[in-house]
Design a protein around this nucleic acid. Structure first.
Lengths: 336, 336
DNA sequence: AAATTATGCTAAATCATTTTAGTTACCTAT
DNA sequence: ATAGGTAACTAAAATGATTTAGCATAATTT
C-alpha cells in the first residue's frame, strides 16, 4: 500500500484537495469551510493515519521545521548540556535539531552555515567563532532567525543569550581575596571572544581594586591538552609567590589540576583554585573545586524560546539576555 | 534575484532540463551526453553557483541525506564523544546528523523513531532501550539502514558495533586480583541491557575462577545521582571486608567516588577502584582512577562506515563488530 | 423582482526535480 | 534505396503539497 496523499483524503471525503489543505493548515474558519465537512476531514485523517509529505510541503513553503545548533564542541560538557535541553524542548514544540561543532574554526563554520542554508533550516542557535560577522549579518538580511549564545558581536543587532562574565569573574576573584589569598593569577586563552575578555576585565578590575597587580597567563586556544599542562606547569614554577589561580574556562582548569598534581602542589594549602563554568567533575574532585556556575537550564530555555518567538514574529526587535552566574564555594578556596 | 533552478541552467546551455539532470546525477556517460555539452553544463553550474533544491529532489527520490543519531544521553561524555566523531565524518561525506536522547525510555524512543520516519531520514544509528525490537524490525523491513551500538538485540539480524564487555570486565577484575585485592564488589545497574549483563558475567566468572564469592550491588537505572550516592554509601558501610570495587559504568563510578569521599575512605589504601568506560576525569582525579577504556574513535568510525555502506548496498548482510577494550591501570588500583 | 452579498467550495497553476519513453539525425550494411 | 542501428538528446508525466482566483447557490437588501 502506497503512502496516503492529500488526494486520497479528499476522495474519501468527496471534497477537493484545496479544502483538505485549508483544514490541514488551520484555515478552515477563514476559508469558511463548514463545521461538518471540517470534522469529517479531520476524522478521516485521524482514521487513516495520514501524514503530510514534508518534501512537498517544504517545496511550497520553504519550511523544514528544523533548527541548526552550531556549538563550539558538542563533546564539551557545557555545550552538550545546553544541546540536551534545547533538543528536548524543540521536539516538544515540533522542531528537530541538526547540530555541528565549529572547533572555533572560522572557515569551517562558514562552510557549515553555507551547507545548512542550502537545506533551508528554519532557524539557528550559534556560538560564533570570531570573524563570523558577515555570515550572521547574511542570515539576518535573509530574515532567517538567529540567536547567538556564550559570546556575541557587539557591533551586530542580534538576539543573544549570554552570562554576566564580568561580574562572574569579579565575584570569583573577590571571593579569593576575602578567603585570605592575595596573589592571584588568571589563566585564560588568547582568544579575543567577548566572554573571555569580560572575564579578564572582571579579574583585572577586582585585583586592582584590592591594591594588587594582575598576573595573566594567556594560552593559545589551539593548543593540545598536553601543551596546556606544560605551559601552566612552567608558569607555576616560575612564580613561586602565587597563592591562588583563577581559571577562565573549564578545560584550562583541567589542565591546571593536572599540572598541580604533577608538581605535587596541594590545593588549597599550596595554592587555591577557582574555575569558571561549573561541572560535575568539580564537585566530585578531591578537594572539591570552587567554581562559577552558569545557569545552563536558563540559558537553554531562553535560547529556544527566543528563537521560536522570532520564527513566529520575524519583525520582533532583537533581545539581549544577560544571565547572572552563581559562585559555588568549595574546598579548593577555603584555608584550613 | 530568485534562486536559480535547473530550468535556468538548461536555458543558459540551450539544452533541456532532462539533460542537465542527467549530468547532475552523474549519468552523463550512461545517457550518452556528449563531453562538450557535459562540460558546458558543469561550467555553467559552477559559474552561477546553482544548488539543487533539496525538497524537490527529496520529493522525487525520497532521499534526505540526513542520518538520525539516537543515543541514550547526548550530555554523557561517552555518547557526546561518539556523536562528535560521527558528526565530523558524516559531514565530510555529505550527510547531516539529526540527533536526540532516549533517556533509555522505551516509549519516548518509539515516539522519536516515528517522528524521524515521517521525515524520511536515510539511516539510523541507535543505542536502543529495551523493548525496541519491533521498531528496529520495522525499519529493517522498510529497508531503512540501521546500525545499533553500545548494546544490541541477540534475537535480531541487525548490524551493530559493540565492545567486548565480557573480557573488558574480566581483565579489570583480574587486574585487581593480580594487584593483591581479594574481596571485590561489582556496582552495576538493574537494567537488563546486553552490555551490562556481559560486564556482570565477566565479573562473576573471574571472581569465581579466583575462588571467591561474587558480591553485587544493583542500582535501579532511574535513580538520581543523590540516590546513587546514598545507596552506595549504605552498601559500603555494611560490608567492611571489601577491599575493591568495580563500577560497571561511568556515572556509577562518579557516585561511588562521592560516596567514598563522604565516608572518608582513602583510595586505594582503604579500597581500590576500577571503572568501566574511561573519561578525562579519571586521569585527572587524585588519585587517578584505573579504567576500562572503550575505543571511542574506532566505534564511531565503524558505525558511520557500516551505515554508509548499508545505504549504498542495502542487501549487504548484517555486520557484527565487537571491538576490544583497553585496561588503563592507574593509581586507584595499585597498593602503595 | 432585480441586484447585491454571503456562504461554501474547487479548478488549476505552481514549486523543482527525476525518469520513462520517446524522437531525430546520421551512419552502415545489404 | 532501404532497413536497422546508434548517438545525442528531449517532451512530458509524476511527485504532493499550497494558494490564487473564481464559481455556484442561497440569503438579503432595495
Amino acid at each position: 500500500m502506497a503512502r496516503l496523499s492529500i488526494k486520497d483524503i479528499a476522495q474519501r471525503c468527496n471534497t477537493s484537495i484545496t479544502t483538505v489543505s485549508f483544514v490541514l493548515n488551520g484555515r478552515a474558519e477563514e476559508k469558511r469551510i463548514s463545521r461538518d465537512l471540517k470534522e469529517k476531514i479531520l476524522k478521516t485523517i485521524e482514521d487513516t493515519g495520514y501524514k503530510q509529505n514534508l518534501f512537498a510541503r517544504g517545496m511550497r513553503t520553504g519550511k523544514t521545521n528544523i533548527i541548526g545548533l552550531i556549538v563550539e564542541d558538542i563533546s564539551n560538557a557545557f555545550f552538550s548540556a545546553v544541546a540536551r535541553i534545547i533538543e528536548e524542548n524543540a521536539y516538544k514544540r515540533g522542531y528537530k535539531i541538526i547540530y555541528c561543532s565549529t572547533d572555533d574554526n572560522t572557515s569551517k563554520t562558514k562552510e557549515l552555515i553555507k551547507l545548512f542554508v542550502e537545506r533551508n533550516l528554519d532557524g539557528y542557535i550559534i556560538t560564533p567563532p570570531k570573524g563570523l560577522e558577515d555570515e550572521i549579518q547574511f542570515l539576518i538580511n535573509k530574515k532567517i532567525p538567529v540567536v547567538l549564545f556564550d559570546r556575541y558581536f557587539p557591533g551586530l543587532e542580534t538576539d543573544y543569550v549570554i552570562v554576566d562574565n564580568f561580574n562572574g569573574a569579579k565575584n570569583a576573584v573577590q571571593h579569593l581575596f576575602d578567603a585570605g589569598f592575595g596573589n592571584i593569577a588568571l589563566v585564560t586563552t588568547s582568544s579575543a571572544q567577548t566572554q573571555m575578555l569580560e572575564r579578564l576585565n572582571g579579574y583585572e578590575k577586582t585585583v586592582i581594586e584590592n591594591g594588587k597587580k594582575p598576573k595573566i597567563l594567556k594560552i593559545p586556544f589551539d593548543h593540545s591538552a598536553e601543551q596546556n599542562i606544560k605551559t601552566i606547569s612552567a608558569y607555576l614554577k616560575k612564580d613561586k609567590d602565587l597563592d591562588a589561580i583563577f581559571f577562565a574556562t573549564n578545560y584550562l582548569a583541567f589542565g591546571g589540576l593536572e599540572a598541580l598534581n604533577a608538581l605535587e602542589m596541594k590545593i588549597p594549602d599550596d595554592i587555591a583554585v577557582v574555575a569558571f563554568d561549573d561541572q560535575e567533575f568539580f564537585r566530585i574532585y578531591n578537594p572539591s573545586i570552587t567554581a562559577v556556575s552558569q545557569p545552563v537550564k536558563d540559558i537553554s530555555l531562553q535560547l529556544i524560546d527566543i528563537l521560536l518567538q522570532k520564527m513566529e514574529t520575524p519583525e520582533k526587535p532583537a533581545e539581549r539576555i544577560i544571565l547572572s552566574t552563581n559562585l559555588i564555594p568549595r574546598n579548593s578556596s577555603i584555608k584550613k
